[in-house]
């Protein structure tokens, strides 16, 4: 009796969780099948005839390629660099300077960044960049993305700094190191995994962000991939599904690869609100 019940419970569990898995899988299936289908429709079907031509089409489209391999990389890369470096310096200072209420400060900062967010924040920020003459520039996008991501970036980085024992720095000082030697030889290398995590996180966020470049970038030659794809879909009548699907897949791929990389290298560590700022 007992074992029969056990088997039933077990089967039920597997059924329900498989359904859940299916729920998360089904919507993205199209993204994986359509790009390889010479006659892609909105239907999910086994690619027939199977082709890589769609990708060839993407690579022949200079606008698409420029958006993906120049603009997106420039904007996401710049944001990644800015966020990782500035967040590391700030998190280190916040940890090692004994300032009263610094924990509360960081919390408030993260919270404040989720108050000033999304389309609401873009109203004043757009005008600000307009007066700074930074509309339609890569720099403008990078600055705004970095500003939005920094609070959460500092929050993430703080974990890593706090987990570095002060004795590392102290032993370097007693060993005879100057402050700069200590920072270069001990602090930065020890914090490198944290910087990597924050960098990857910032890159993924900047790479995936649609709203900010959609608002700030006007000229087609500066559009990053998400804005370019969207314009494929909304402009010029019926969308070419083969092109859009292949391009979307190419565009989504770095995020998947980075996720797998982080998962493999560091284990996917869960940070509250990993997607917090910047959106």
């Amino acid at each position: 009796m007992r074992s029969a019940r056990f088997v039933l419970v077990r089967l039920g569990f597997m059924l329900v969780t498989s359904l859940l898995g299916t729920f998360f899988l089904l919507p993205v299936l199209w993204l994986v099948t359509a790009p390889f289908n010479a006659q892609a429709t909105l239907r999910v079907e086994w690619p027939s005839p199977f082709t890589l031509q769609n990708f060839g089409e993407v690579f022949r489209n200079t606008f698409a390629i420029r958006a993906l391999f120049l603009n997106s990389i420039l904007q996401a890369g710049g944001t990644m660099l800015g966020t990782a470096v500035i967040a590391t310096l700030a998190a280190y200072a916040l940890s090692r300077l004994e300032i009263k209420g610094r924990n509360l400060f960081v919390y408030l900062l993260v919270l404040f960044s989720s108050v000033v967010t999304g389309t609401a924040a873009m109203v004043p920020i757009f005008l600000l960049l307009y007066y700074l003459r930074l509309i339609d520039t890569h720099l403008g996008v990078i600055l705004v993305l970095t500003g939005g991501l920094l609070p959460t970036g500092i929050f993430l980085m703080r974990d890593f700094v706090e987990s570095m024992p002060r004795s590392y720095e102290e032993s370097a000082l007693v060993s005879g190191a100057t402050a700069w030697q200590m920072f270069r030889d001990v602090v930065l290398p020890v914090l490198r995994p944290g910087m990597m995590v924050v960098a990857v996180w910032a890159f993924v966020n900047a790479w995936g962000n649609f709203l900010i470049p959609a608002i700030l970038i006007r000229s087609p030659e500066k559009m990053p991939a998400p804005v370019a794809i969207y314009s494929f879909y909304t402009e010029g009548g019926t969308p070419v599904l083969t092109l859009v699907s292949a391009y979307s897949l190419l565009y989504a791929l770095p995020v998947v690869i980075l996720y797998l990389f982080v998962n493999w290298r560091y284990g996917f560590r869960f940070f509250g609100g990993i997607k917090g700022g910047g959106k």
Binding site: V28, W30, R43, W207, F210, V244, Y251, A252, V256
Partner: peptide
Amino acid sequence: VFSLATMAWILPDVAVAFAWIAF
């Protein structure tokens, strides 16, 4: 299940939007 759910969470907006238009 965790990987699929996490993937749905981290994929870029525009890519999932198109997937859902098709879906």
